[in-house]
Computed example of a mutant assay.
Amino acid sequence: MLWLALSLTFACLAIRELLSPWNRDHPQPIHPPYLLLVSAIAIGFAWPPVSTWRFERFLESRARVLTEGRPVSVHCNTLFDTMLDPNALAAGHANLATGEIVLQKPWCSTLRDYLDDPASADQRGIQSLNLFTHEVMHVRGLLDERVTECHAVQYNRRMAELLGVPAPLALDHARRYYRESYAQRAEVGGLSGSYFSPECAPGRALDLRLPHSIWR
């Protein structure tokens, strides 16, 4: 909201400058350098929220492919949003009733950076992909965190491809998450361990046997 308020302020200055020759009391000529400056500042302040809005709609369109017709909406929390979010300690959360997915700051930015350059992805970038896939799995109707995370592990490849990651990288990153980040959950235990299941493995109970499986 702050970005939009600042953008609107400078947009008003630009409009006032355009209307200055028609001011009955004090008509003034238009000053092009000033007009260009305030217009550029207005556009600059408007770009962050517009860019975020476009990214949210992009994520929604790709998520719908995996939610099997269930409604889904995506919101990237600002720092202020996160401070007011009762689930602020969670990197992301989903409302199964409404289909709303919320990603906390800075995870949306991390995911966007990952998608901008997947070839240079680090562990955190790959984790941001899994975070989004995990919340999409919740929207599909899954409640149990162990099951949800295991489904996300297996759908990460498909989600990455839907988001534009080249197929070889999508498979590699999905496998890296499973071998590294997911395996670490069992070692760390605690809250992180509650997302891990030994049945999340080839041929075990939680193997979905997907045609785009990560372990075949």
Rank of each mutant, 00 (worst) to 15 (best):
L2K: 09
W3S: 12
W3N: 12
W3Y: 15
L6M: 14
F10I: 07
C12N: 10
L13H: 03
A14E: 04
I15M: 13
E17Y: 04
L18M: 14
L18H: 04
P21K: 03
W22I: 08
D25I: 07
P27S: 09
Q28W: 11
P32V: 08
P33H: 10
Y34T: 13
Y34W: 15
L35P: 01
L37K: 09
V38Y: 02
A40V: 12
A40Q: 10
I41M: 13
F45G: 03
P48N: 09
P48G: 08
P49Y: 07
S51I: 01
S51F: 14
W53Q: 12
W53M: 14
F55P: 01
R57C: 04
F58W: 13
E60N: 06
S61D: 12
A63G: 05
R70L: 13
P71F: 08
V72M: 04
V74D: 01
C76T: 00
N77D: 11
L79T: 04
M83Q: 08
N87W: 12
N87R: 13
A88E: 06
A88V: 00
L89M: 10
A94I: 03
N95P: 06
N95L: 12
L96R: 14
A97M: 10
A97R: 13
E100D: 11
I101Y: 02
K105F: 15
K105M: 11
W107Y: 15
S109K: 10
L111M: 11
D113N: 12
Y114H: 11
D117R: 13
P118T: 02
A119H: 05
R124K: 13
I126Y: 00
T133D: 09
V136I: 14
M137V: 14
H138C: 05
L142D: 03
L142T: 07
D144I: 00
E145W: 05
E145I: 10
V147P: 00
E149R: 02
E149S: 06
Q154N: 08
Y155V: 02
Y155E: 09
Y155W: 11
N156G: 15
R157F: 08
M159F: 07
A160V: 06
A160Q: 03
A160W: 00
L162N: 07
G164S: 09
V165K: 00
P166D: 06
P166N: 05
P168Q: 05
A170R: 00
H173S: 07
R175M: 10
R175L: 11
R175K: 15
R176S: 05
Y177R: 04
E180V: 14
S181E: 11
Y182D: 02
Y182T: 02
Q184A: 14
V188W: 11
G189V: 03
G189H: 08
G189I: 04
G190Y: 13
G190V: 04
G190R: 11
S192L: 15
G193Q: 06
S194N: 12
F196S: 01
F196N: 00
P202S: 06
L208M: 14
P211S: 15
S213L: 09
W215T: 05
